[in-house]
Amino acid sequence: MKITSVQHIELHGFNNLTKSLSFNMYDICYTKTKEEREAYLDYIDEQYNADRLTKILTHVSDIIGAHVLNVAKQDYVPQGASVTILVSEGPVVEVPDEVYDESPGPLPDNVVLQLDKSHITVHTYPEFHPDEGISTFRADIDVSTCGEISPLKALNYLIHSFETDVMTIDYKVRGFTRDKDGNKLFIDHDISSIQNYIPENVKDQFDMVDINVYQKIFSIQSAS
């Protein structure tokens, strides 16, 4: 795996930069008969069931240096699967229950979950046209991290984990942190293109186009 090195910046205080990588892959197959369509869907269910997707996302967590907190997975009928993994940048220290005894609690039918840092999710969408013979498979993967860990490190692995004809990749950075001199930083690494994090031999297999969307500030005022 080729990982492009990034410049290290000495930060001060809490780093609340959120880095989100959205990886969407599409597979398209012409299934002329009902038997071909069923065989394709069976193949997709075998290749991308919840157990295998969990292994892929767990390895993504290892690559980016995150710690798995919790895993939720589900297969669907007739097809499709979802996996959600909660991760943290470092080991989580458990807090004794008695710490919360005197704090206001939730209403009886509410559930409150304490999340540490980040999450990794995948949802799959196998579909077919009943008349035209086109079967498709889409997988939406989101890797969202806070702190210093970067989801870009897992990009090459994700491309190799899914047999894809078409893919779209979005990368967003939100929030801010500060350097040691107190200056605000809205990104803590240099990046001009997601392609910087994809090996040349992989880029040679696809036609790639960059679309950079720059931030704009909008002011919304209520009518008096």
Score class of each variant (00 low, 15 high):
residue 135 S to Y: 12
residue 7 Q to C: 06
residue 195 Q to C: 01
residue 163 E to S: 06
residue 118 S to E: 00
residue 45 D to M: 03
residue 171 Y to V: 08
residue 168 T to Y: 14
residue 96 P to L: 09
residue 42 D to K: 08
residue 75 D to Q: 10
residue 58 T to Y: 03
residue 93 V to H: 09
residue 193 S to G: 08
residue 75 D to K: 05
residue 39 A to F: 02
residue 218 F to L: 08
residue 99 V to D: 01
residue 86 L to G: 04
residue 145 T to K: 00
residue 78 P to K: 04
residue 97 D to H: 09
residue 89 E to M: 05
residue 1 M to P: 11
residue 170 D to V: 06
residue 175 G to Y: 14
residue 14 F to N: 03
residue 207 D to C: 15
residue 53 L to S: 01
residue 153 K to H: 08
residue 70 N to V: 04
residue 143 V to K: 09
residue 7 Q to I: 07
residue 154 A to G: 10
residue 10 E to L: 06
residue 181 D to I: 00
residue 128 F to R: 06
residue 141 I to F: 15
residue 117 K to R: 12
residue 7 Q to L: 05
residue 191 I to A: 12
residue 103 S to N: 14
residue 167 M to D: 05
residue 58 T to K: 15
residue 26 Y to E: 14
residue 88 S to T: 02
residue 58 T to I: 06
residue 167 M to F: 15
residue 29 C to R: 11
residue 128 F to W: 05
residue 212 N to P: 13
residue 65 G to Q: 01
residue 162 F to V: 02
residue 85 I to G: 02
residue 20 S to Q: 04
residue 14 F to T: 06
residue 113 L to D: 05
residue 111 V to C: 15
residue 68 V to S: 01
residue 85 I to Q: 07
residue 224 S to D: 09
residue 115 L to K: 02
residue 192 S to W: 13
residue 53 L to P: 02
residue 40 Y to H: 02
residue 45 D to L: 07
residue 137 F to D: 07
residue 45 D to I: 06
residue 89 E to L: 01
residue 59 H to V: 02
residue 202 V to Q: 03
residue 108 P to T: 03
residue 169 I to P: 00
residue 78 P to R: 13
residue 102 E to V: 10
residue 123 H to W: 06
residue 14 F to E: 15
residue 37 R to T: 10
residue 100 Y to R: 04
residue 2 K to S: 12
residue 88 S to L: 03
residue 135 S to E: 06
residue 194 I to S: 13
residue 99 V to M: 08
residue 24 N to F: 03
residue 170 D to W: 04
residue 182 G to D: 13
residue 102 E to I: 10
residue 37 R to E: 14
residue 142 D to K: 11
residue 112 V to H: 12
residue 12 H to G: 14
residue 97 D to N: 04
residue 49 N to Q: 07
residue 134 I to S: 15
residue 32 K to Y: 02
residue 106 P to T: 07
residue 205 Q to S: 15
residue 215 Q to I: 01
residue 74 Q to D: 06
residue 67 H to F: 08
residue 163 E to A: 15
residue 114 Q to K: 15
residue 159 I to F: 04
residue 163 E to F: 03
residue 148 E to K: 03
residue 82 S to L: 07
residue 153 K to S: 07
residue 190 D to R: 03
residue 111 V to M: 08
residue 39 A to W: 00
residue 7 Q to S: 13
residue 215 Q to R: 07
residue 192 S to K: 13
residue 79 Q to T: 09
residue 89 E to W: 01
residue 139 A to R: 13
residue 6 V to P: 01
residue 135 S to K: 15
residue 195 Q to K: 07
residue 190 D to W: 13
residue 213 V to D: 02
residue 129 H to W: 06
residue 82 S to I: 13
residue 174 R to C: 12
residue 147 G to Q: 07
residue 44 I to D: 00
residue 169 I to E: 00
residue 39 A to M: 11
residue 122 V to E: 02
residue 95 V to H: 02
residue 220 I to H: 12
residue 30 Y to M: 13
residue 104 P to C: 04
residue 43 Y to S: 14
residue 56 I to F: 00
residue 165 D to H: 11
residue 220 I to W: 06
residue 25 M to K: 09
residue 124 T to A: 00
residue 173 V to M: 12
residue 134 I to Q: 12
residue 24 N to E: 12
residue 213 V to Q: 11
residue 145 T to W: 00
residue 134 I to N: 09
residue 105 G to K: 07
residue 54 T to Q: 09
residue 166 V to E: 14
residue 47 Q to R: 12
residue 169 I to K: 03
residue 129 H to Q: 13
residue 23 F to H: 03
residue 39 A to S: 09
residue 104 P to H: 09
residue 198 I to Y: 01
residue 52 R to D: 10
residue 174 R to A: 04
residue 170 D to L: 04
